[in-house]
C-alpha cells in the first residue's frame, strides 16, 4: 500500500504533504463494498424487531386524525437532497474516474459541482436552522437509551425504550459523518479555488504556506475518498428492500400512516400532513 500520504520537497527543500495516496481511494471503495457485502449477509440473519403489527393496528386506531400519507421530506428538502446528490456524484466521478483510468478534462466540472454542493449545503444549513427541526437529525447523549433499545431490537428482543424519532439513529450517525466530511471537503475545496483558474476569485496560489496547502490537499483527499465509502453505503441502504419506503419518501415526500407508526415514535416525531400543518 505504501504510504498513506505523499510527500514532496518544497522549492525550499522542506518536506511537505502533497496528496493522499490514491491507494486510499481503493481502500475506501473496497471498504464500502465490503461493508455492503457484510451488511447484506448480516441482514439475512437479522432479527430486527419492528413494532408488532397488532400494536401498529392499535396505534392506527388511536390516531384516526392522522392523514393517510405523512410528509417525511418537504419539497424543498427533497430538492436539496437531490441537488446535493447530483453534485456529490459529479464530484466523485470527476475526481475518481481519472484515477481508475477514464481520462478527461475533469477539473472544471469538479469545481463547478463543488460550487453547487457548497451552495446547496449552505442553503440546507439555513433551511434546517430556520425551517426544519434542526436537532431532529443531530446525535447526542440523549440518544443513548434509543441506541440501547435499538440494539436489543436488533437481536430480536422487543425492548422498551424510545423508538426512533424522525430519523433512525444510524441515519443520524451517517448524517454526522457526512457533515464532518462534507464541511471538510467544502472548506478545503473553497481554498483550492484560489489555486485553480475559475474566474470567480482573484487567484493566489501562495495564499497559504506550502505546508498548509499540503494539509489542505490531504484533508480534501481523505474526506473525498471517505465519501466513496459513505456514498456506497448510502446508496446501498437506499436500495435495500426493507428501506425502499424511505427512499420513496425522498422522491415523493411522504410515507404512509402505517409506515409512520411502524418505524417511528409518534411522540418524538409529530407527523405533518402534506400541507405542512401539524396533525394530532
Amino acid at each position: 500500500m505504501g504510504n498513506l500520504v505523499s510527500w514532496a520537497r518544497s522549492p525550499w527543500g522542506d518536506s511537505v504533504l502533497t496528496h493522499i495516496s490514491w491507494d486510499l481511494f481503493w481502500a475506501s471503495l473496497i471498504g464500502g463494498l465490503l461493508f455492503l457485502v457484510a451488511h447484506g449477509g448480516y441482514m439475512l440473519f437479522s432479527q430486527h424487531h419492528k413494532r408488532d403489527s397488532s400494536e401498529v393496528d392499535r396505534m392506527e386506531a388511536d390516531r384516526k386524525g392522522l392523514p393517510a400519507n405523512v410528509l417525511r421530506h418537504g419539497f424543498v428538502a427533497r430538492m436539496f437532497h437531490w441537488v446535493m446528490a447530483f453534485s456529490m456524484l459529479t464530484l466523485l466521478l470527476t475526481a475518481f474516474l481519472p484515477i481508475v483510468g477514464v481520462q478527461f478534462a475533469w477539473v472544471q466540472w469538479h469545481w463547478m459541482a463543488g460550487i453547487l454542493l457548497t451552495a446547496s449545503i449552505m442553503f440546507h444549513i439555513v433551511h434546517a436552522t430556520f425551517v426544519l427541526d434542526f436537532w431532529s437529525i443531530w446525535v447526542g447523549p440523549k440518544d443513548i437509551p434509543e441506541f440501547k433499545a435499538e440494539m436489543m431490537r436488533e437481536v430480536g428482543i422487543d425492548a422498551p425504550g424510545p423508538k426512533p424519532g424522525k430519523y433512525p439513529l444510524g441515519n443520524r450517525l451517517y448524517h454526522l459523518a457526512v457533515v464532518v466530511a462534507g464541511l471538510s471537503v467544502i472548506v478545503t475545496g473553497i481554498l483550492m479555488m484560489w489555486r485553480v483558474r475559475t474566474g470567480l476569485v482573484e487567484r493566489n496560489p501562495y495564499m497559504l504556506t506550502d505546508s498548509t496547502w499540503g494539509i489542505t490537499y490531504v484533508v480534501h483527499g481523505l474526506m473525498g475518498v471517505g465519501f466513496v465509502g459513505l456514498v456506497i453505503a448510502h446508496i446501498y441502504f437506499a436500495l435495500r428492500p426493507e428501506k425502499l419506503w424511505v427512499t420513496k419518501s425522498m422522491i415523493f415526500g411522504t410515507i404512509t400512516r402505517r409506515q409512520y407508526l411502524e418505524h417511528h415514535d409518534p411522540d418524538r416525531w409529530v407527523a405533518e400532513s402534506k400541507s405542512g400543518s401539524n396533525v394530532g
Binding site: 505523499s6 514532496a8 522549492p11 502533497t18 496528496h19 489555486r195 483558474r197 487567484r203 493566489n204 496560489p205 501562495y206 496547502w213 499540503g214 490537499y217
Partner: peptide, 12 residues
C-alpha cells in the same frame, strides 16, 4: 510532477 500547484501560473 505529481504535486498540487502550478508554480508558473501564479501572480508573480
Amino acid at each position: 510532477a505529481g504535486g498540487n500547484i502550478c508554480y508558473a501560473d501564479t501572480p508573480t
